[in-house]
């Protein structure tokens, strides 16, 4: 205690504060050693040819390779598609479900629970279950579609559907969280607005467009940001369902990082990691600022 107080005084931040700076220390050590240091090291190691035994500086070779190999470039593209599709669907479906679940219907409690529960279930468990449900010949989904005369596609085996099928399962698992965030946002809108709108004879659509949509904006910001971060980093569901296949048609940056790591190309894997930093930062930070600034203006 005495030592800590003395240190605080030494730094010129006044006599020993009841809120000492060393309270940051334990968290700072763990976070610094296992998050900040690796992040900074990544910038260096991505410029090296790096194996278990040694690393050798090679400049931007890894990045050149990353942007030249079609399999790796397509991973970058797939990451974007996956993130945009999942967050777009989560916003639209989450908003629709939230409006449904705050309206006058029975069994709201049941519906909220059943929509939210998949959020808590193991991603690997969900992924493997849907691999079986999406089996092209015997899977439940195509059996059901067959019963109504629709010839279901090979969800995970057809190269043009694999990525989108995984994205759909991601939405199935994650839409409950978006819904709950929207419910919290809609419930916090003061009832007076709806009462005033009713007096003015507003339609349901006007209610939605003029009251819910603008006033639930913080919820939209949260849903968009959360699902973009999740979508851009997404690995477990894709790995459990397709391992990036068939071919490389559902590979994303995160799965490329893992594959290159497994193959022993640590430098290339780390370059992929740096690309992922840049992509996430370049998309999420400006978007966050933009969305929050709009809110302040209103």
């Amino acid at each position: 205690m005495v030592a800590a107080g003395a240190r605080a005084a030494h730094r010129g931040s006044g006599p020993s504060s009841p809120y000492p700076h060393w309270f940051y220390a334990p968290a700072a050590v763990v976070f610094g050693v296992l998050f900040l240091v690796p992040t900074v090291l990544a910038l260096y190691f991505s410029l090296t040819r790096w194996s278990i035994f040694s690393s050798e500086f090679i400049g931007f070779g890894n990045y050149a390779q990353f942007f030249q190999e079609p399999a790796l470039v397509s991973g970058l593209w797939h990451t974007m598609v996956y993130a945009v599709v999942t967050s777009g669907l989560k916003v639209v479906l989450g908003m629709a479900l939230a409006i449904l679940l705050t309206s006058q219907i029975v069994a709201r409690g049941y519906l909220r629970s059943v929509v939210f529960f998949p959020v808590l279930v193991s991603t690997i468990g969900v992924g493997l279950t849907f691999v079986v449900l999406m089996n092209p010949e015997r899977g439940l989904i195509n059996q059901a579609l067959g019963a109504v005369g629709v010839d279901g596609p090979g969800w995970l085996t057809d190269p043009s559907y694999a990525l989108l099928s995984v994205a759909l399962v991601d939405v199935w698992k994650g839409v409950g969280l978006a819904t709950l965030i929207y419910i919290a946002g809609i419930v916090s809108i003061p009832q007076e607005y709806f009462e005033a709108a009713k007096v003015d004879g507003a339609s349901a659509w006007q209610n939605f467009k003029k009251i819910i949509l603008p006033l639930a904006r913080p919820a939209t910001v949260t849903v968009v940001i959360l699902s973009l971060i999740g979508g851009l980093r997404s690995f477990d569901l894709i790995w459990a369902m397709t391992r990036g296949g068939p071919g490389f048609t559902s590979d994303v940056i995160a799965s490329v990082i893992y594959k290159q790591y497994q193959a022993g190309f640590y430098g290339l894997s780390t370059a992929g990691n740096v690309v992922l930093f840049v992509v996430v930062t370049a998309i999420v930070f400006p978007l966050w600022r933009f969305l929050n600034r709009k809110e302040v203006e209103m």
Binding site: V33, F35, P38, I229, Y261, S269, T270, N273, F277
Partner: peptide
């Protein structure tokens, strides 16, 4: 800023293994 970056930035996998 550090709290925010911890929330947003994906961790650097192989360098973390190196540190460990």
């Amino acid at each position: 800023i550090l709290v925010l970056s911890g929330l947003i930035m994906p961790p650097a996998v192989v360098p973390t293994i190196w540190v460990l």
